[in-house]
Simulated scan of single mutants.
Amino acid sequence: MMKQRFTWRILFALIAMAIVIGSVFYTNYLSSKLARIETQTMENWVEAHRTIAKASGETNLNLAVKISSENEDIPIIETNERDSITNNYFNLDSVVVKKDADYLKNKLAQFKKLHAPIILELSTNPLVENKYYYGETRLQKELRYFPIIQLLIVAFFISFIVIAQRSENHNTQNRLWVGMAKETAHQLGTPLSSLAGWSEILKNIPGNETILPEVEKDIERLKLVSDRFAKIGSQPKLERKDVVAQIENMVSYIKKRAGDHIVFSVVATENPLFANISAELFDWVMENLLKNALDAMDGQGALSIYVKRMGHQIIIDITDTGKGIAYRNLKKIFSPGFTTKKRGWGLGLALTKRIIHEYHHGNISIKSSEVGKGTTFRIVLNA
């Protein structure tokens, strides 16, 4: 599924690039064609002025005058044989010319870079001639910027599609999480009710006094798991709780199952530290992170938790001295289904991230990790 989606994204991007590149080439072709037309128009315009300048009394000047007056687009500046600007200019803003003394000079410098002048020779001895420098029409300028505008439109369209697709994927993932959590809680409900009934029956049978407390502990544990999934399937209620106490309780629970070669430590700059949390789901987060740390340390090492307040936030750093995480896996570690273990679904850290992000409006990330030395996870909660 991911491979197919990736292929479609590449194909879509290539099509968009092909459209833009094709548009750029076609626009350049049109621009070159328009430039040739403008040059021909200028040559006709100068020829018309030559006809008018050399006309005798009986010459019909209707066509020359018509050609001369029809140029309303191409900006023109006239200079003499010494290349000095005369008082004649065409299709330029006369108001700006009067206000800015350097306007015509600057425009002339621009026109010289664009085209060679078209020369109208009026006399050879002495040499008298006019040079006509010309710029680009508004259509030519708009045509040059058209590929950029089109590129921006395509980029906006691609961005819109990507954002919409991500939003849809996120919503689909949310529905999947909710559906899976509700179904899990529902499936656990029936055997739990049955186990609770059997537990009551066992109480009345002599000889079960030693095993019954352990059975009831496991039933309570299963009820806790079911309750966690039920809260994942709905919006949990956040309550003001002491985060340090919650962490210490979970460390105490994990410590009993970790063995004697793991050294635990919990350090808090303030105690208590309160935040709005769902106690059951926060415990689940800590349990997932602590169990992952134990797995990474293979039964020996140090696991430390450092809690501090920073402004309006509570920072929780969970550090182990385990195997560490390879750099190539850092961006994938919270992705559903990703795991480096031989067994497991790869959902623990994905659930952890969802609980912190979606339900507690906080953040969880890998603060640091080095292969062979250990990993530090950081949780940020709003105080």
Results as ranks from 00 to 15, higher is better:
250 M>V: 04
251 V>M: 04
252 S>H: 02
252 S>T: 05
252 S>M: 04
252 S>G: 12
253 Y>F: 10
253 Y>D: 01
253 Y>C: 00
253 Y>W: 08
254 I>T: 02
254 I>K: 07
254 I>W: 01
255 K>A: 13
255 K>C: 00
256 K>L: 10
256 K>T: 10
257 R>Y: 08
257 R>M: 06
257 R>D: 00
258 A>C: 10
258 A>E: 00
258 A>D: 01
259 G>Q: 01
259 G>A: 04
260 D>L: 12
261 H>E: 07
261 H>W: 07
261 H>D: 13
261 H>F: 15
262 I>P: 01
262 I>E: 03
264 F>I: 08
264 F>E: 05
264 F>N: 06
265 S>W: 05
267 V>T: 15
267 V>L: 13
268 A>T: 02
269 T>H: 10
269 T>V: 11
269 T>N: 09
269 T>Q: 10
270 E>C: 10
270 E>Y: 09
270 E>K: 14
271 N>M: 11
272 P>A: 14
272 P>L: 12
272 P>Q: 14
272 P>M: 14
274 F>R: 01
274 F>I: 10
274 F>P: 02
276 N>Q: 13
277 I>V: 15
278 S>I: 03
280 E>D: 13
280 E>A: 11
281 L>W: 13
281 L>V: 06
282 F>I: 06
283 D>K: 15
284 W>Q: 09
284 W>M: 08
284 W>K: 06
286 M>V: 12
287 E>M: 11
287 E>C: 05
288 N>G: 00
